[in-house]
């Protein structure tokens, strides 16, 4: 559906360089990046709202790089949704249909969408009186009713409280399953990116650093910066001792000998990483390593406990998280189990 090839975009001194990615029909591609990474710039470039400095944007194989935004069949939904305040809900929903008669699904398509999201009671309401969740639904339906084949969503759920956000994730999932638009979702929320994204791209320093199927990117971040952006707090210097067919042993001061997946082409000096919430207090099944340390600090609350552990022989602290509320004593010995399939190895910086 959407194919972006070597796209260059500039805004002042900031530059996005050589961006390559695809979004297929009925697929959600999540683009994750920190604030200021150029996510909005990328969306506006793809939508044709900003001039590009190089590269191509293709829709269904057709080069639309030089096309005006209204001809591309791509709907842009900004962070604040930009529902038109001078129109009521129904007029907002029909806005795109007025101008995209050929592409839209017509009255039947609109009624289908309205019924699907239960928007009938809201049709005559003004925008300013609507809740955040209602506005989100309307923005999504407005884009689809205009016959847009691809939705560009710019952090659409960032201003919504956590409980409602999960409802809206489900709504988006259902809309994609039912109406099969392609969705390019930019977000800085790691959980949102991996729960919604069939594919995930990581945008850092003007480049797409990593792109792939969500679970693959989650399990195998390509470098320490990407790993940190994806929420990995435990990265320790290590040395590869042996490697065979992508798995092997890594020696990590403070943690010991750890069995891990090892990507090809690494030198022996490396970083070992794992996520704090994936360790176990008891020895688990399968391969893994038992680690001993001393509790430095702990923060119980919200049904979980975050523990900072000092490890023998290294100054770095290890951060682990338990899915229940626990209490510790400062300096108390602690043992935990790192399952081998939850570790990964990165090139040393």
């Amino acid at each position: 559906m959407l194919e972006v090839r070597k796209l260059d975009l500039t805004a002042g001194d900031f530059r996005l360089k050589g961006l390559d990615f695809r979004v297929e029909r009925g697929e959600c591609h999540a683009l994750i990046g920190p604030t200021g990474a150029g996510k909005t710039l990328l969306l506006e470039g793809v939508a044709g709202l900003l001039p590009t400095q190089g590269g191509q944007v293709l829709m269904d194989g057709e080069d639309v790089t030089g096309w005006a935004p209204e001809r591309r069949g791509i709907a842009y939904v900004p962070q604040d949704l930009a529902l038109f305040p001078h129109l009521n809900v129904e007029e907002n929903l029909r806005f795109g249909m007025r101008y995209s008669k050929r592409n839209s699904g017509g009255e039947e398509g609109l009624h289908d969408l309205i019924a699907f999201l239960g928007l009938e009671p809201l049709l005559k309401r003004r925008i300013e009186g609507l809740s955040g969740g209602e506005q989100q639904r309307i923005a999504l339906v407005r884009a689809l009713a205009a016959g847009r084949r691809l939705l560009l969503l710019d952090e659409p759920f960032s201003a919504i409280h956590a409980g409602l956000r999960r409802d809206l994730w489900r709504v988006l999932r259902e809309l994609i399953a039912r109406f099969s638009p392609g969705v390019l979702l930019v977000t800085h929320d790691v959980e949102e990116a991996f729960l919604l994204g069939d594919r995930v791209s990581v945008l850092l320093d003007g480049y797409i650093r990593q792109e792939g199927v969500g679970e693959e990117v989650y399990r195998n971040p390509c470098d320490p910066e990407v790993a940190r952006l994806l929420g990995v707090r435990n990265l320790f210097a290590a040395e590869i001792q042996s490697c065979e067919e992508g798995v092997g042993w890594v020696l990590c001061p403070g943690l010991g000998r750890i069995h891990s997946r090892i990507p090809e082409g690494l030198s022996s000096r490396c970083l070992l990483g794992f996520r704090g919430h994936e360790v176990l207090l008891e020895k688990g099944e399968g391969l893994g390593t038992e680690v001993r340390g001393k509790v430095r600090e702990w923060f119980p609350g919200g049904g979980k406990t975050l523990v900072l552990v000092s490890l023998p022989g290294i100054p770095d602290l290890c951060e682990i998280e338990f899915r229940d509320t626990r209490s510790f004593c400062p300096g108390e010995d602690i043992r935990f189990w790192i399952p081998a399939d939850k570790t990964f190895v990165l090139p040393a910086p």
Partner: peptide, 19 residues
């Protein structure tokens, strides 16, 4: 951003200005 959204929904520059 209102104009950007209107353009992406299919309105040309003049239609966006008018609408």
């Amino acid at each position: 951003r209102y104009e950007k959204v209107a353009r992406s929904l299919g309105a040309n520059s003049f239609q966006t200005f008018r609408g």
